[in-house]
Design a protein around this nucleic acid. Sequence first.
DNA 1: TTGAAAGCGCTAACAT
DNA 2: ATGTTAGCGCTTTCAA
Lengths: 324, 324
Amino acid sequence: MVTMLDVARRAGVTKQTVSNVINGRTWVSPKTRAKVESAIAELNFVPNLVARSLATGSTQTVGFIVPSLAATFYAEMVEEVGDILDEQNYHLLIASTHHDSARCARHLLSLTGRSVDGVLIADDGTYPDDQPAVNFPSVMCARESEAPIALPVVTIDYEHAGFLAGRHLAELGHRRVGMVSEHTRRVAGCRRALGDAEIDVIEVGESTERSVGYDAAMAALTRKPRPTALFATTDVLALGAIDAAARLGLRVPEDVSVVGLDDISESRSHHPALTTVAFPKREMAREAIKLLLRAVENGEPPPDGVTLLRTRLMDRASSGPAPA
Amino acid sequence: MVTMLDVARRAGVTKQTVSNVINGRTWVSPKTRAKVESAIAELNFVPNLVARSLATGSTQTVGFIVPSLAATFYAEMVEEVGDILDEQNYHLLIASTHHDSARCARHLLSLTGRSVDGVLIADDGTYPDDQPAVNFPSVMCARESEAPIALPVVTIDYEHAGFLAGRHLAELGHRRVGMVSEHTRRVAGCRRALGDAEIDVIEVGESTERSVGYDAAMAALTRKPRPTALFATTDVLALGAIDAAARLGLRVPEDVSVVGLDDISESRSHHPALTTVAFPKREMAREAIKLLLRAVENGEPPPDGVTLLRTRLMDRASSGPAPA
DNA sequence: TTGAAAGCGCTAACAT
DNA sequence: ATGTTAGCGCTTTCAA
């Protein structure tokens, strides 16, 4: 490995001068700078960031703890975060919890040891409530739980997203709606919008399986009287619900309307295209990482509080007026 | 920050002894070990990996350069790699190239500076051919280009995947097939299987857009005589092709068969379910990272050569006998 | 079995 | 504008 000392010798200066050149100190004479720079080029010198980190205390690295990567919801956030970090010359350390709070705690600890400059945590409800204090600023995003938490949070207004979906159905005249649910907050919002409509909630577990939506919708649609609309708390579940309707020979949206939440890309290309409420995932990631970075650069904890991002109804083909 | 010295003082030993305890050296007396351990617990000491890295030269970190994360193809690989690394107590540094070779080169350089222990590169054809030698072992995966490369490669037998799709169509009696293509190797395999059948190739650029498959299939299906089968080099394109067929009032598979490549989860749940050739993405990731880790632990470059992973035909509803 | 000394490659503070 | 000294927190000798 070629070190600063090698470069210094080659350029006939001390390593401190080399350091000054590398860090763009302004007072290096042009002549010296040129000598150093050519020595660097000749030797193919690349500064050792580990050593720099030890000396400065900053690793230019942030950790991102995510529940999973297979879900595009998180993958997109990771991509966005990675891009922003890249712009700012930070590095991204990824740790996946697989929805397991013990793993999350372990990662937090190991990130402490690596002295990352900050950590972003995408929550899925499994964040351990009694996390020991860590020595770096942290920000949480995507949190849906009602419970307060000792961390600044940037998330989506999930309740309001449900509300938008519910209001849409209400406006279309639906008075009997089935809900395929794995998220109480979203359901609460939808319910709020629906007022005193007749509501049938089918609980399903945490799932990214379309078939789960199918099964749940099957149950809802075979009830008498049959609901005129189905609200699913995620698009994947909603897509499964459309499958179920088709299977039962019901037309969407003539016989039954289906509304989802999230706006995954498949929802757009699906036939019929899914009416849904779009989650601003990338924007959420951006806000969260910016908050974190600001805290890192200022050397202070990020401002506590919750930022709620607005969602938008995407009125597409899978919803229509309630049948008479 | 609490250091080894703090622990040492508290336990009434030297920091060397603390180090011995932490690293599980066997010759520490039980009494001393107990003292040290309780000091560690009391002070909440977490060893500083940056300092350790500087001293040992190993960071217990591997970098993974991916073209993108939004594509589930890569996201799944990242997840798999992350899991294996986690098991082995390594950390994962993610860098995304956005299909840009300059960015790839930049990342490689910056990973050098961070002295990662190794780097895994998922190629998408944009890997710069004249990469400067780096100071860590590297392995490449998912490479599809024909060009030789100075790196060990673990990838999928894309040509054979195309062949399997083509053979399937040939066996079903298809003699006129349209190809929606963005991958020459896959097309070559399919063509090989199809022998002297009449083939119409519609080239589309690198794309994850379903509408691109739709447009291309539209073009292929409006030719006279109309092909009886469509082969698309990715599932997303194939799904778009099915959309196009539906739009033209053609039944799948009675009027036209559609076959894709990859086996994304949507292919299974789609109606009709897509016949495709499954790419063993996770297995590929696993093989690649294991190869890399072995090289890292042995302190030698990974064995050069190409590992080709086998693919499997998933015979589903979107393909059937050629119409008479 | 434990302790003391040196050094990993860099930056910070000071001296020149 | 450049050189000198010290030290970041750990591991690796080597000595006791």
